[in-house]
């Protein structure tokens, strides 16, 4: 009877994951593998294609080739296009924060926790969760953006002016390794829940109820991985190990953002992202 409950929990979280997130890993992998030739993404690989495609960044539906306006003389200088792109990344990240929040609210027991603890859990888990979800959109050559409608190459991201060009490389390296575990969306739903319900986040008022929920989630994840990946007996342990690498990745990222604030005076961080990053590590 206990395993039936754990299976029901996995199913519930998978369903709310599908409701909360517009682009699943399954869809992203289909686009990246080119299986779905009808919706091949628009590729941004240089300044010219960025300027051509930037008006569609964060569009949920980009116009077909014949309806796309031709690149004209009115385009901004490349530097501004780059900055505008970075701003739209921030906007999409803020939107993703609200999607993750909706997902967190669907984890049984989460909304019954002290509201301040809900904030703490989300604040500390948020960037970890976003990086895990970003891995689903990446391969060694680049990443999908704009709900899978644009593919931006890794080389082009690397060519961004300092320090932006260096910021994505560690995420690619992490993603390539993480993707080797071959988790699917139903595994991810549980893994993200486990990350969110971490009892060791600084400043939690009531640790025990958080740990109790996480304990159940962990048992559900272990069972899920056993059933879904019978050929990888060590997968549960490997997935848990990724949580350590993830914390390092996030703390490096936050540090780069702090440095950015000193060097890029014009760069203003979205207020929601500011809330999350303030006093984080």
């Amino acid at each position: 009877p206990e395993s039936a409950d754990l299976r029901a929990l996995a199913k519930h979280l998978y369903e709310s994951y599908l409701k909360s997130f517009p682009l699943t890993k399954a869809k992203a992998r289909a686009i990246l593998s080119g299986k779905n030739s009808d919706n091949a993404p628009f590729v941004i690989h240089d300044m010219r294609s960025l300027m051509e495609g930037e008006q569609f960044v964060n569009c949920r539906q980009i116009p077909t080739q014949e309806h796309r306006p031709v690149m004209g003389a009115l385009h901004p200088p490349p530097d501004e296009a780059e900055l505008r792109f970075l701003h739209s990344c921030q906007f999409r990240s803020a939107e993703a924060v609200s999607e993750v929040t909706e997902f967190a609210k669907s984890i049984p027991g989460f909304v019954n926790l002290d509201l301040n603890d809900q904030v703490t859990l989300l604040k500390y888990a948020m960037i970890e969760v976003l990086f895990i979800m970003m891995a689903a959109l990446m391969n060694k050559d680049g990443t999908l953006i704009s709900y899978g409608q644009i593919f931006m190459t890794r080389e082009f991201l690397k060519s961004f002016r300092k320090p932006f060009g260096e910021m994505m490389e560690p995420k690619f390296e992490f993603s390539i390794k993480f993707n080797l575990l071959e988790l699917d969306d139903s595994d991810m739903a549980l893994f993200l829940s486990v990350i969110i319900l971490s009892g060791d986040r600084p400043g939690l008022l009531n640790v025990k109820p958080v740990e109790d929920i996480q304990e159940t989630l962990l048992r559900s994840l272990e069972l899920q991985l056993k059933m879904n990946h019978p050929d990888s007996p060590q997968l549960f342990a490997k997935v848990l190990q990724k949580m350590t690498d993830l914390r390092q990745l996030v703390s490096d990222h936050v540090q780069s953002i702090q440095l950015l604030k000193q060097t890029e005076i014009d760069m203003c961080l979205h207020p929601l992202l500011q809330e999350i990053m303030r006093d984080l590590y």
């Binding site: 906007f91 803020a94 939107e95 924060v97 609200s98 929040t101 909706e102 609210k105 909304v111 509201l115 301040n116 809900q118 904030v119 989300l122 604040k123 979205h270 207020p271 929601l272 809330e275 999350i276 303030r278």
Partner: peptide, 20 residues
């Protein structure tokens, strides 16, 4: 609470989209 105004709002709102 003041420090995390938007997060509080997101948590307390229903599923309706929040103005970001």
């Amino acid at each position: 609470k003041e420090k995390h105004k938007i997060l509080h709002r997101l948590l307390q709102n229903s599923t309706s989209p929040v103005d970001l």
